[in-house]
C-alpha cells in the first residue's frame, strides 16, 4: 500500500479548473516531483495535501487513512514553503521547536531533538540566530529542519530551492536529497525546474493543465516522453513535422529513419540536441539533415548551435572538449546527423 495516495483530486478557482481528476501514489520513503510550468496546478495539489486548500472532490489517503477533511494542524505534514515562512520573531531553535511544542513534546526532548535537527542540516552553531540574521541558504535549512522536527507523515516541498542563487541551489539540492534519504521521509516535491526534478526525484510527475501528463522515472520522462507535451517541456529538442512514407519519415529536404514507425500518417519527430552531431564530410549517420549555422553560443561544457534547415530552425549541442566548435562560424553550411534510436516520434 502506497504511503500517500491522491485519489481523483479536483479543485477549481472561480470556475477555472486548477487541478483536474488527479491521482497519484507515493511509496513510503520515496521522493516524487511534481514538475510543471507555473499555473499547471502543482502548488494547488501540494496545498491540498497539506490541508491548506480544500479539494472540490476526490480524497487524500495517508497510510490508508482518509485525511481529506482534516484541518492542516491535525495532519502532520512537514511543509517547506517557497519563501520558507520562518517565524521572524523566533530564533532558529525556537522555529524548529515550535512544531514539537504544538504536538505536545516535552521541553527536554524538544531541546534535544531540535539540536539534532539543526545539526542534521548543518546549523548547530546558529541555533540562537533570528531568521533575518541568516542567509537565504541557512533559512532554507532551518525551514527543512522545522518541517522534519515534527516527524511528519509526509514531507511537502514547495519550490524550496527557487529563491536561492544557482550555485547554492545545486549544493542544497544534493544535501536535501541526502537528508531526505537518511530520514526516509516520503516526499512530494513541487518544482518548475526540470534539472532539479530529474536530479532529485525517484519519480517525476510532469503536470499540464491540472493533470499528470506523464508519471515515470527521471530517465523515462526524459528518454521516453509519453506525449509531445512532455517531450517539449522536459529538456530541449529539435522538432520536425513530416509524413511516414517508404519506411521513413519524409520531412522537407530529408528522409528520417526511426524505430517502430507506423505504416502511414502524419508524424512529429523530436531529437535531443545533445544526441546530434555536426558531421565531417566522410562521416555518416542513420539520419542526416543539411542546414546553415545561424548562431553559436558557447556555454562552457557545450556550444549551442542554432541551425536553419528546409524543415525549420533547430538546436544542436556539441561538446567543447575537442575545440572543434571554434572552427564553426555563422553562415557555414553543415551536415547534422543522429542515429535512428535517438529519434523520438509521435503521431501528429
Amino acid at each position: 500500500m502506497a504511503h500517500l495516495v491522491l485519489n481523483q483530486l479536483s479543485r477549481a478557482y472561480a470556475g477555472r479548473p486548477a487541478v483536474v481528476d488527479l491521482s497519484l501514489s507515493v511509496e513510503r520513503g520515496s521522493l516524487v516531483a511534481l514538475l510543471g510550468a507555473s499555473g499547471c496546478g502543482k502548488t494547488t495539489t501540494l496545498r491540498m495535501v497539506a490541508g491548506l486548500e480544500t479539494p472540490d472532490s476526490g480524497s487524500i489517503l495517508v497510510d490508508g487513512r482518509d485525511v481529506t477533511k482534516l484541518p492542516p494542524h491535525h495532519r502532520r505534514m512537514g511543509v517547506v514553503f517557497q519563501s520558507y515562512a520562518l517565524f521572524p520573531h523566533m530564533s532558529a531553535a525556537a522555529n524548529v521547536a515550535f512544531g514539537m511544542e504544538m504536538h505536545g513534546v516535552d521541553r527536554t526532548r524538544r531541546a534535544k531533538r531540535g539540536a539534532e535537527m539543526l545539526a542534521l542540516v548543518g546549523l548547530a552553531e546558529h541555533s540562537n540566530k533570528k531568521p533575518r540574521q541568516m542567509s537565504g541558504g541557512q533559512q532554507q535549512r532551518v525551514a527543512l529542519a522545522r518541517a522534519l522536527a515534527i516527524e511528519p507523515d509526509v514531507l511537502l516541498l514547495d519550490e524550496p530551492l527557487s529563491a536561492l542563487d544557482a550555485k547554492l541551489r545545486d549544493e542544497l539540492r544534493v544535501e536535501m536529497r541526502a537528508i531526505q534519504r537518511r530520514v526516509g521521509a516520503t516526499t512530494l516535491f513541487v518544482t518548475h525546474d526540470q534539472a532539479e526534478a530529474l536530479a532529485m526525484a525517484d519519480l517525476v510527475a510532469v503536470m499540464d493543465r491540472g493533470q499528470i501528463a506523464q508519471l515515470g522515472t527521471p530517465v523515462d520522462v526524459f528518454e521516453r516522453p509519453a506525449s509531445p507535451f512532455v517531450a517539449a517541456f522536459v529538456g530541449r529538442s529539435a522538432r520536425f513535422r513530416g509524413k511516414v512514407a517508404g519506411g521513413g519519415v519524409e520531412i522537407s529536404g530529408a528522409s528520417l529513419r526511426a524505430d517502430n514507425l507506423p505504416a502511414s500518417g502524419a508524424i512529429e519527430v523530436f531529437v535531443r540536441p545533445h544526441r546530434m552531431q555536426v558531421l565531417r564530410p566522410d562521416e555518416g549517420r542513420d539520419n542526416i539533415v543539411h542546414g546553415r549555422l545561424a548562431a553559436i553560443d558557447y556555454t562552457g561544457e557545450v556550444a549551442q548551435l542554432v541551425i536553419d534547415s528546409p524543415s525549420g530552425r533547430f538546436p544542436v549541442d556539441i561538446a567543447t572538449t575537442d575545440g572543434a566548435w571554434r572552427e564553426l562560424a555563422p553562415g557555414a553550411d553543415l551536415r547534422v546527423g543522429w542515429q535512428a534510436a535517438d529519434t523520438l516520434w509521435f503521431a501528429a
Binding site: 490541508g51 484541518p71 494542524h73 505534514m77 515562512a85 521572524p88 515550535f98 512544531g99
Partner: peptide, 29 residues
C-alpha cells in the same frame, strides 16, 4: 506590515490550532 498569512499557514502545518496560531504567531508579530 510584518504580518504574513503564510506564517499562519506554516504554524498550522506544524500543528498549531487557530488560537495558538493567533497567540504564538500573529499577536507577537
Amino acid at each position: 506590515g510584518r504580518l504574513d498569512r503564510l506564517l499562519e499557514e506554516a504554524a498550522a502545518t506544524l500543528g498549531a490550532g487557530p488560537m495558538r496560531r493567533f497567540w504564538r504567531v500573529t499577536f507577537p508579530l
